[in-house]
Design a binder for these strands. Structure first.
Lengths: 251, 251
DNA sequence: CGCCGACTTGACATTAATCAAATGTAGTGG
DNA sequence: CCACTACATTTGATTAATGTCAAGTCGGCG
């Protein structure tokens, strides 16, 4: 519930390097997926600065005017909403190759805060210029639609998680989801570091920090994983997957 | 949890009338919003059949191949997900002027079931043909992006609701949301009929049918609303809004 | 009239939240 | 290297919110 209130001064630490999709290791997962060399060049030309965001720095804040989408190049982010009563809900954790800011298109203002979980880098994508490209680059447009659609289905999965799953199941689903995203990026699917605090995990999953801590202890005792601070090793991914899917035999 | 299992035979009851945006009362809320007469005609030309879907009939089912988006012309729908363990989560209730099927773009298969809550009508929008229009109709494309983005923000609000709100707050938010959508459609914001069962409401809000029933009784006793079967009259919308926002003084 | 499904209400159980310590960890300065 | 602080995490005891189970009631329809 309590907001960490990172220093608001650290907005964007601009790096004069221009971003380039062609030589970015994430281009198979990110916006330029499937583009030919020619189209890739055109996209490169509109992509703006490559920006560094320090740990706990804001990438953007709720109600900021919307001008850019951001693609995560390095690092991790969290996005969260706050309502009038001060209740906060983390709506996602974003990693390299994922797009931030699509929720702002509908009103031209950002609907959430985005904060870096570690020192990170993003590519700035001026949305107006991206729209100009759409007319002549159907492959780009199609992939952009897929990315928005994917965000919709991701959120639907979270709705299922928050609306119908027990604590244990939520947490298993969370771990399995992280594992699969790291796999897609060429990292180990069983060993990784949590970039977010227990509190952030709990907030995202609709649970308290104490519940997360207890679940970690229990999973460890059950031999499902090893944990040391934020370092995680999944010892029994199959059982975790079954728990997440709700198909585990008994409990 | 238990699925009503509507007759799967009632897929689409085709009506030979062609849909037309120009004379549809929903065009200010729906996909053609803001289009000039010329563009509207072009959109009309690609829009396929106008389809009737009987109450409890499926508009589409999970894993069906994706070819069309659907705009609700008349009636109401619900969409829901089911996971491997059989857990079900209603992800939305759609009314006239709202678009169904955007979650299918990412994989070319529908990610949820869509069922009519009453006898309804939709306009079929062949997505491949819509994409062809995007190149030459930037206004249409922009509005389509707004609609997808709006769906993302809607789902984020539901995440906040499911992750952080108490039962009472969730239900107030649900009622207030319905009221505002009816207002936007020119209907009363204080008197309307619930098109969905208590069970559906509970499922959507992550609560049980008993909780919904008790909340209705309590709100009635507190003078916040009148209820008779599915007929609702909001007597104190201001307090309901404050409850939904989490800004109500005490409880 | 009587049945059926949808809803309501009550009694009780359970899950996860809350409250309260205790412990661990990282960073800082001596 | 160590003491010290601030903060994050773990663990335990208790409570509160909501779920579960079990009757009942209501309304519509054949």
């Amino acid at each position: 519930m309590s907001n960490p209130s990172p220093a608001p001064s650290t907005f964007l630490n601009v790096n004069s390097l221009r971003a380039s999709c062609s030589n970015c290791s994430m281009h198979q997962l990110c916006l330029p997926m499937g583009l030919g060399g020619n189209d890739m060049d055109k996209l490169d030309q509109i992509i703006g600065r490559r920006c560094k965001v320090p740990r706990d720095g804001y990438l953007y804040r709720m109600d900021d005017p919307f001008t850019n989408l951001y693609a995560v190049r390095v690092g991790h982010f969290k996005t969260y909403q706050i309502n009038a009563g001060g209740e906060q809900q983390i709506t996602g954790f974003q990693m390299a190759g994922e797009l931030l800011g699509m929720d702002a298109i509908s009103t031209d203002r950002h609907h959430c805060d985005a904060i870096a979980l570690e020192d990170s880098e993003v590519c700035e994508i001026p949305f107006a210029r991206l729209e100009e490209l759409f007319g002549s680059m159907p492959v780009l447009l199609r992939h952009f639609h897929r990315m928005m659609s994917q965000e919709i289905t991701r959120e639907q999965s979270v709705m299922l998680l928050l609306g119908n799953m027990r604590a244990e199941q939520r947490f298993a689903a969370f771990l399995v989801n992280l594992a699969s995203r790291y796999t897609a990026r060429g990292y180990s699917s069983t060993s990784f570091q949590l970039r977010m605090s227990r509190e952030d995990i709990g907030n995202y999953l609709g649970l308290t920090i104490e519940s997360i801590s207890r679940l970690l202890s229990r999973f460890k005792k059950q031999g499902l994983l090893k944990v040391s601070n934020r370092e995680i090793e999944l010892l029994d991914p199959a059982t975790l997957k079954a728990m997440a899917a709700g198909t585990e035999i008994c409990s």
